[in-house]
Design a protein around this nucleic acid. Structure first.
Length: 235
DNA sequence: AATACCAGCAACCGCCAATGG
DNA sequence: CCCATTGGCGGTTGCTGGTAT
């Protein structure tokens, strides 16, 4: 019996052979970008600027489609792209903005709310982390019920995290490493339990209530500053 | 040690709107 | 207008690395 992994490896080898069999293949390259390709793209854009992706693909020497070049640049190579885990603050913003805009991923990072974050990254976050919670709870991620669960249980925990970070930063800058910065609370797979299970499975009145839309959060300076961000989120 | 499984994410695909000839 | 081309978007796929069995 051939495992999936073995199949995948075989497929990779096949594609490598195909692209090499005639020296330089006339077919457009696909798949992961190499360092050389990245450098070529950066170099070309540095000289000629962004845009006109098809002619860029044609004249840069990259054997790629214009679309592929555009995607690589916008999602990975652009200088202001921020890499690494999403901070709790960013996660809250995503949850909030998604509740407002739905799956309109390109709008969510728009307006400087999430500088350096791409629509692709936000989309991936939503699908892998947020929808995972919904799946575990067996409720529709677009349902009102799930939205409420997020508001009442998930967001307060993220807010706590932000406060905690602020406190740690003000008292000791060396403790940042312990904050697990950017991690979604208990949702990183290490804990398979849904982090907002209480919200759905019982009616326990959690201590923290969060009314993001009306921006009535006033638990700390950090929270009120977040609220001001939310109030600006009308694009 | 080998295999299966899973999560995260980079990259692709198909569709559609905007634009220009 | 009409058509071809281009760029952008949202959905989906599949590769990779880590973990469990």
């Amino acid at each position: 019996m051939i495992s999936n992994k073995t199949k995948r490896i075989h497929k990779n080898i096949t594609s490598i052979n195909n692209s090499n069999e005639s020296g330089r293949s006339d077919e457009l390259r696909r798949g992961p970008w190499t360092l050389d390709e990245d450098n070529l793209l950066i170099q070309y854009i540095t000289c000629h600027g962004e845009g006109r992706w098809n002619s860029l693909a044609k004249y840069s020497g990259l054997n790629r489609t214009g679309k592929s070049c555009r995607l690589r640049w916008l999602n990975y190579l652009k200088p202001d792209i921020k890499r690494g885990n999403l901070t709790p603050r960013e996660q809250i913003l995503i949850l909030e903005l998604h509740s407002k805009w739905g799956n309109r991923w390109s709008i969510i990072p728009y307006g400087g709310h999430l500088p350096g974050r791409t629509d692709n990254e936000i989309k991936n976050y939503w699908r892998t982390r947020v929808q995972k919670q919904a799946r575990q709870l067996k409720i529709d991620s677009n349902s009102k019920k799930f939205l409420e669960a997020i508001r009442m249980h998930w967001m307060p925990r993220l807010l706590e995290k932000i406060e905690q970070n602020n406190n740690n930063n003000s008292s000791s800058s060396s403790s940042v490493a312990n904050n697990n910065q950017g991690e979604l609370p208990s949702s990183d797979g290490s804990n398979s339990k849904p982090i907002i299970s209480n919200a759905v499975n019982n009616n326990s009145s959690d201590v923290h209530t969060y009314t993001s839309s009306s921006i009535s959060v006033s638990r700390s300076r950090s929270i009120s500053s977040l609220a001001s961000i939310f109030s600006l989120s009308t694009i």
